[in-house]
Simulated assay, not measured.
Amino acid sequence: MVLLLTLIFLLSFSIFYSLSMLAFNQVKTVDKLKHFDEEYVELNSGVKKEKLNFIKSLSKLIPDFKFNGRIREYVELELIRADLPLTYNELVVIKILISLITGLTLYLLTKNVIIAISLSFSSWSLPTLFMLKRKIDRIKRFDSQLSEAIVIVSNSLKAGYSFLQAVSVVGEQVKEPLGKEFKRLLKEMSLGLSEQEAFYNLQRRVTSEDLNLLINAILIQKDIGGNLAEILDNITETIRERQKIKNELKTLTAQGKLTGAIISLLPLFLGVVIYLFNREYIMLLFTTKIGLAMVIFSFIFELIGIFMIMKIINVEL
């Protein structure tokens, strides 16, 4: 018992320490572009060795298989979209550690192998859910800043600035995440990428419909000509109207989302309550064939119900 508790404590501390090191000390790819800036002066001429932390060390033990190449590329792109300084292997290591800690902790608390293993497998997807939630929140913040950025670009063009200078102004005046993405866009174009390639990379990093509208308008204007400032003013009005409609839809569908969340969590809540008051009664679901069949079918129908509710409340513009 003492050995297991010590192991859980060491694993928890290792994850917390490693995530802290990744968040504050890891050099991101976009930051390496500063070595190509004219104003950048490297203080130390010697090559600095990156400090290997616990998760990085474990990630090197995971082999790179050829059959999961597309999955690896997709996950790494999602990590970039979520602005998480992690690699695919490091994410896998975090998932493994969280699953082990969850399984060991639940086994010590319940002494039930089935519950410990099932919830351990369930916790495997927690880092992925966190990544998706962070990506969605980042896109929402980006969309909320986009109208302001377009106005700055339009006013800069009217004042006689070039397009690159206008992008630089946006990168300096607008906060993250939009300011950071525009700085990266400016660096890519300054390093020799064409505007089309740089905008394509921006579209891959930020999956925003409003951004796609802006980029398409800019590229079309580059081909056929026209007053870019006037085009940007019209796009600003369109984006503001779209965001206004989205906010109205959120208000109208808020009750449906709350209902779906309550219905989804109600079986879990009742299961925990019954387990606390009558453990032998609820354990029949996990110790008998009929009970396991009921759990499986209820889980499937629960997913179907959640899917139907999400289809009803999600309105595409």
Rank of each mutant, 00 (worst) to 15 (best):
K66T: 11
K66F: 08
F67M: 03
F67R: 01
F67G: 00
N68A: 06
R70P: 14
R70K: 10
I71P: 01
R72L: 01
E73D: 13
Y74Q: 03
Y74V: 09
Y74T: 04
V75S: 08
V75R: 05
E76Q: 12
E76M: 09
L77G: 15
E78I: 01
E78W: 03
E78G: 02
E78N: 13
E78F: 10
I80R: 10
I80H: 07
I80F: 12
I80Q: 12
R81E: 10
A82N: 12
A82S: 15
D83P: 07
L84W: 04
L84P: 01
P85W: 11
P85V: 05
P85N: 13
L86K: 00
L86A: 10
T87R: 13
E90T: 08
V92Q: 11
V93C: 13
I94S: 02
I94F: 15
I94C: 07
K95G: 02
K95Y: 12
K95M: 11
K95H: 06
L97M: 04
L97I: 00
S99H: 00
L100F: 10
L100A: 01
I101K: 09
T102H: 14
G103V: 02
G103K: 09
G103F: 10
L104E: 05
T105P: 01
T105L: 08
T105D: 05
L106D: 01
Y107I: 05
L108C: 06
L108I: 08
L109C: 11
L109R: 15
T110K: 14
K111W: 09
N112S: 10
N112G: 11
V113R: 15
V113G: 10
I114C: 07
I115T: 04
I115C: 02
I115N: 05
I115A: 03
A116L: 12
I117F: 14
I117S: 03
S118T: 14
S118C: 05
L119Y: 14
L119D: 02
L119C: 09
L119P: 09
S120W: 08
S122N: 11
S122A: 12
W124A: 02
W124Q: 00
S125I: 03
S125N: 14
L126S: 05
L126I: 07
L126R: 04
P127H: 08
P127I: 05
T128W: 15
F130G: 03
F130I: 06
L132S: 04
K133F: 07
R134T: 06
R134H: 06
K135T: 01
K135M: 05
I136W: 02
D137R: 12
D137I: 00
R138L: 08
R138E: 06
I139Y: 04
I139E: 03
I139M: 06
K140F: 11
R141I: 06
R141S: 08
F142P: 08
D143H: 12
D143W: 14
S144I: 05
S144M: 13
